[in-house]
Amino acid sequence: MAAGAPLITFDKVWKSYGQGEARVHALAGVDLAIKRGEFVAIMGPSGSGKSTAMNIIGCLDTPTAGTYSFMGIDAGRLDRNRRAMLRNLYVGFVFQGYNLLARTTAAENVELPLIYRGVASRERRNLAMQALAQVGLVGREHHTPAELSGGQQQRVAIARAIVTRPTLLVADEPTGNLDTARTHEIMELLTQLNTELGLTIAMVTHEVDVAGYAERTIRFLDGHVASDIMKVELA
């Protein structure tokens, strides 16, 4: 992949559900490109197609028509297991509801993606500790999610997402369950990961404040990209 080439490209991507009269187009021929190192906020009302777009970006879903390429790979044509491999190698996920495994310690949660990579147990523990340190959770590695606050749980989730040193971080309303102070902390952390590690971040949010942390905001409406604005242009 040439330097400066986009990490993510949507080429006339369609995603449709149902048949005949009842056919609904969640995405209707979307063109989009995200470069390496970008921090992109994706906004839009529910039903606008933003979640569908995020699922395709995260290689969880495939387009009905058009091409989705990720790192120059035609990811939209890969089978389940290949996409799983792609996710494991290059994509980290952060969800609104944290999605940690219950009754499993923070360290074990963070180690999870490494298990599917076949990393040895000791090495896994080291990497998990490093990731937990990066998100500021030293000393909490043996706590289970139930023993951690919402903000801390989201930090564990972020540690789990970055422990594999991914190229892309997909965040789905990462602050949706948090109060303002916690939201600020988490967004600071994401910004820091973006600038310090050069991690590309695609984040869905419906809060303008949260979107403000990103350098670029893409708004979806009715399956189309309604606006695509760089922060510098706003300033």
């Binding site: 389940r80 799983a84 494991n88 990579r117």
Partner: peptide, 16 residues
């Protein structure tokens, strides 16, 4: 189901 979803999302194969 949710746990399975998490595992699949972070890269578990069907066989795992």
């Amino acid at each position: 189901t949710r746990e399975i979803g998490i595992r699949l999302a972070i890269g578990a194969h069907e066989k795992h």
